[in-house]
Design a protein around this nucleic acid. Structure first.
Ligand SMILES: [Mn+2]
Ligand SMILES: [Mn+2]
Ligand SMILES: [Zn+2]
Ligand SMILES: [Zn+2]
Lengths: 146, 146
DNA sequence: TTACTAGAGGAAAATGATTATCTATTAGTA
DNA sequence: TACTAATAGATAATCATTTTCCTCTAGTAA
């Protein structure tokens, strides 16, 4: 469960190194995003943080998430038909998304790491990152629709 | 240049079959999206259409693009850090995106069609579609930044 | 411990892309 | 040619996100 405790501490250290502060609200955001590795939108993060700090403002979540994004410690996911989701793992990795319940999960797929290099070579682009996303209906939602 | 003329006519037929009308403004949108296969945002489509029909309203472009999207004849691209882009080819296919000039181009990559089936089998998901997108800096933008 | 100060929080207004509304117009059909 | 439902255009509304502005506090150093 505290599988990503180490990275949590790294991000905290980097925050301080960049002249930022570790407030209780920020700590709560970091816990849910970086340590627990959920793929949540701002509203959902807000609910988590409010459980501990009821006075929290939604703007604070937005500001915190943007600070983390600018530091490259969090990545933004999701498309235009839904609001933005955030991932505490900023390294590009494939996702599996249920279009019904909107759940986003990580998946492992071998042999994808070579693709960016291959594209860079063929097209002359300097590849910075990539996205591989699969959209479908999860097993639970398939049952429900019967 | 009129490589996709046939599909343009198919989309027109489908529009009519669904009880929609082919207006001059819609025809202009179809030409730039379906026939010319550009990856444009609403504002850019608007500029194209206004060249022929100066009184066109931006809302008309949004409505047309949404009709086409609901019919499954156009797909929406792009992420939260930019406004939506539209692709006249609704079949999932990989894209190469310059994060500097925002140009989006189609690329051919073999052996990607099996991936969705593989994921479906392993995870029990019913896969509907997918996205493969590579982000980088195009050759032209690499030169400019020297 | 205390004091200092730049960074952060909270509340609310502003923004910007997208959607909805409301008539007047018109494409498609008989 | 006439009819009618769909569409265009103009504009208001919506909604996620950003900005503003002022107060508060985390981190630091005396
Ligand atoms: Mn992830
Ligand atoms: Mn394309
Ligand atoms: Zn589901
Ligand atoms: Zn470029």
């Amino acid at each position: 469960m505290n599988e990503h405790q180490t990275r949590l501490e790294e991000v905290i250290a980097k925050l301080r190194a960049n002249g930022h502060r570790l407030t209780p609200q920020r700590m709560a955001v970091l816990k849910v995003l970086v340590r627990d590795r959920e793929h949540l939108n701002v509203e959902q993060i807000y609910e988590h943080v409010k459980a501990d700090f009821p006075m929290t403002s939604l703007a604070t979540i937005y500001k915190t998430v943007n600070v983390l994004k600018e530091m490259g410690e969090v990545m933004e996911l999701g498309f235009h038909d839904d609001c933005a989701r955030f991932d505490g793992n900023p390294c590009p990795h494939p996702h599996l998304i249920c279009i019904n319940c909107k759940k986003i999960m990580d998946i492992d797929i071998d042999d994808l790491d070579e693709l960016p290099r291959e594209v860079a070579r063929r097209k002359g682009y300097q590849i910075i990152s990539h996205r591989f996303e699969f959209y479908g209906i999860c097993p639970r939602c398939q049952e429900t629709s019967n």
